[in-house]
């Protein structure tokens, strides 16, 4: 009991002297690779398009999901490398938002595209977002290793999600995926309004 009281007192003392936590190693960092992973994890735009593409490929079946599993990260990496070469290029917000809304709509409609079409769509969307990633990350000091980290995270999320969707039974689970697609489409459509508003103001 005495030992427990002692432990408690030490713990309380430690709590009293607790200083603001410098969480996520903002001062030292984990390194460029993990910065890339973190960049993807906290970028809702990137996360949403990867989720949408994974849902889309997953709904179209195992073959399409397998193709997308490699096509998306590869396209993202190539696009990112090109974007890193032209870091001052426009980030094309209308194009990326349109592709987000379109992907969401394809999921919501459960569009019956061929495997080749799904792969082509995934490559175009992945390259577009990758280009924007490369163009925006490079001026911030993130290099190729950070891009590789982001691409690895994309591969991970896309593979897990698409694989889960391919095995969903017909009925409510697949309907839930389509509802999620409609939400992404609606979000993209509202974003288009936000993008257009300042130009008209």
């Amino acid at each position: 009991m005495r030992r427990a009281v002692g432990t408690t007192l030490v713990a309380l003392a430690a709590i009293v002297v607790a200083s603001p936590a410098h969480a996520h190693l903002v001062e030292t960092g984990f390194g460029a690779f993990y910065d890339g992973i973190a960049h993807f994890a906290v970028s809702l735009a990137d996360m949403l398009i990867v989720i949408a593409l994974a849902l889309f490929a997953g709904l179209r079946g195992t073959r399409a999901a397998r193709h997308a599993m490699f096509a998306l990260p590869a396209a993202w990496l190539v696009g990112g490398a090109l974007g890193a070469l032209w870091p001052t290029a426009s980030i094309w917000p209308v194009s990326t938002t349109l592709s987000l809304a379109l992907t969401g709509a394809l999921v919501a409609l459960d569009a019956k595209l061929s495997d080749a079409s799904v792969t082509a769509f995934v490559i175009v969307a992945g390259a577009l977002y990758g280009f924007v990633n490369g163009a925006t990350m490079t001026p911030g000091g993130a290099g190729g290793l950070a891009l590789l980290g982001a691409v690895c995270a994309i591969f991970f999320v896309n593979t897990i999600l698409a694989a889960e969707v391919t095995v969903l039974p017909v009925g409510w689970p697949r309907i839930a995926v389509r509802v999620a697609g409609s939400w992404i489409a609606a979000t993209g459509m509202l974003m288009l309004g936000w993008l257009a508003r300042p130009t008209l103001a």
Binding site: L44, A45, L48, W183, A186, T187, L190, M191, W194, L195
Partner: peptide, 10 residues
């Protein structure tokens, strides 16, 4: 804008 739109739709 994106988070606002997403929260709105959700």
């Amino acid at each position: 804008a994106l988070l606002y739109s997403f929260g709105f739709v959700v």
